[in-house]
Amino acid sequence: MNGRKKILVLIGLVFFLQACVGAPKPPKELLSLNESQMKIRSYQSRTFDIKDQQKVMRGVVAALQDLGFIVERANGPMGLVTAGKFAGSGHSGFVELTVTVRSKGESRVEVRVNAIINTRPIEDPKIYQSFFTAVQRSLFLPG
């Protein structure tokens, strides 16, 4: 019986400790830029030495198709592409992407991408790296 009590206490403790996940509080920096957000932004963007914004847009669309994404919406003048993909092969959920392509100065174009999986932002730099590798390839640029 003693052993059982111990177990119960332990289980209780485990649940108690689980509270260290914390009650949801609205983050203070909800609308302000902090360092980590700046970092995220830096690996979500890449600049290409191409003049033509539309050409980069088409390259992005082709890269998304290569990766098996479904282009849901696109707006040429605004440089916006929204795409989605069902996470297949053993993973559940839906990946969504928003890509913006903007001219930066005279001869460069900046591509920025945000990815979310099941409504949660993806913060893994590697993921963005592989996306840009696909874009680079589709624009016939040397990796």
Partner: peptide, 30 residues
């Protein structure tokens, strides 16, 4: 119990959705 505790406590760590890199990589059949 230790395993159970470990599993539950792992929730305390930085929670980051596991995103397989394969989503953004060209597959061999692409």
């Amino acid at each position: 119990l230790l395993l159970l505790g470990g599993v539950l406590l792992s929730g305390c760590g930085a929670s980051r959705a596991a995103t397989p890199e394969s989503f953004f990589q060209l597959s061999p059949e692409s």
